[in-house]
């Protein structure tokens, strides 16, 4: 299980990386942390002609707080998200999610940009970005563009990135004060990919939900933002409301049936996560109770 032969260039600057991307196109692969790419290489599932190592580009690293935006450099590692006080204070959802990504040694090298560009539908961060309405900052030799998370993830391992483009940063709007987050995933073993998971952002308005974004992962070919929240926002939440939302959620999902979980299990987990999330953010544990038949 040895990687196939490939060429390797260490990018000296973003411009250098973009020039290399432009030259090599889809024959090239960007190497950032390598925690998804290296397994694929070792298993010979990926056979790039050249790796462009962006790992030394310090300008892609770090978390910057602006007025209403948190800008996260693409090379920011999962471990950084887990320990950054700025992230804990501004985007606790990312901190919660990071704790579930693989294991410490992986989190020390895996990067947020690499994770998002890889677009594994069972991965935690894409769903978080969808919940947080993040924008992907994408550069190419032609310039810079921003793509909303909902347009970025296009399918299994598919994104809006063109072969000559580089994801350089993620801009995350700072949730309004008083926002609540919820993160949970069903995994067989700690650190495994989820059978189904939910990253959620809610704004609680008295006893009601002013806003609710339920972003599911491992439920389809990309993270899924539930439309069923329409049943829950701006109304008094009751068990009936939750049941309506769950039924609506069920109708909008088309989950896969695989070794990890059947489609029916994923639907079941998705419904459970909905009620548990609402109960959690409203601090009404009775809403999560499900009568066991």
């Amino acid at each position: 299980m040895k990687a196939p032969a490939f060429s390797y260039v260490r990018a000296e600057s973003i411009e250098h990386a973009l020039e290399l991307l432009s030259r090599h196109g889809s024959a090239a692969k960007i190497l950032s942390g390598g925690q998804s790419l290296l397994p694929a290489l070792n298993l010979r599932l990926a056979v790039p002609a050249i790796l462009i190592d962006i790992g030394r580009l310090d300008e892609l690293r770090g978390i910057k707080l602006r007025d209403d935006i948190v800008a996260i450099g693409a090379l920011t590692r999962h471990a950084d998200l887990l320990t950054s006080e700025d992230i804990s204070a501004s985007l606790p959802l990312l901190r919660q999610a990071a704790a579930h990504v693989a294991h410490p040694a992986i989190r020390n090298r895996g990067t947020i940009g690499g994770n998002l560009a890889h677009a594994d539908p069972a991965s935690e961060f894409p769903a978080c970005m969808l919940a947080l309405e993040a924008r992907m900052v994408i550069r190419s030799e032609g310039g810079e563009r921003r793509v909303n998370a909902r347009d970025f993830f296009r399918g299994i391992y598919e994104t809006a990135l063109e072969p000559h483009e580089l994801l350089t940063a993620i801009e995350v709007p700072r949730p309004q004060p008083g926002s609540r987050t919820y993160f949970h995933e069903f995994v067989r073993r700690s650190g495994d990919y989820a059978m189904t998971g939910l990253a959620a952002l809610a704004h609680v308005d008295g006893a009601q939900l002013g806003d609710l974004r339920l972003s599911y992962f491992a439920i389809g070919d990309r993270p899924h933002l539930a439309r069923a929240t329409a049943y829950l926002v701006g109304v008094d939440i009751t068990a009936e409301r939750i049941a309506e939302a769950q039924a609506s959620l069920d109708a909008e999902l088309d989950p896969p049936d695989d070794q990890q979980a059947s489609a029916a299990m994923r639907r079941h987990f998705a419904r459970l996560l909905l009620s548990r999330c609402v109960a959690d953010v409203l601090e009404r544990p009775e809403l999560a109770m499900e009568v066991v038949r």
Binding site: R188, A264, M265
Partner: peptide
């Protein structure tokens, strides 16, 4: 597995 348990309980 959870699938086996849930399916025995008639839930998946």
């Amino acid at each position: 597995t959870p699938r086996v348990i849930l399916s025995a309980l008639g839930r998946a």
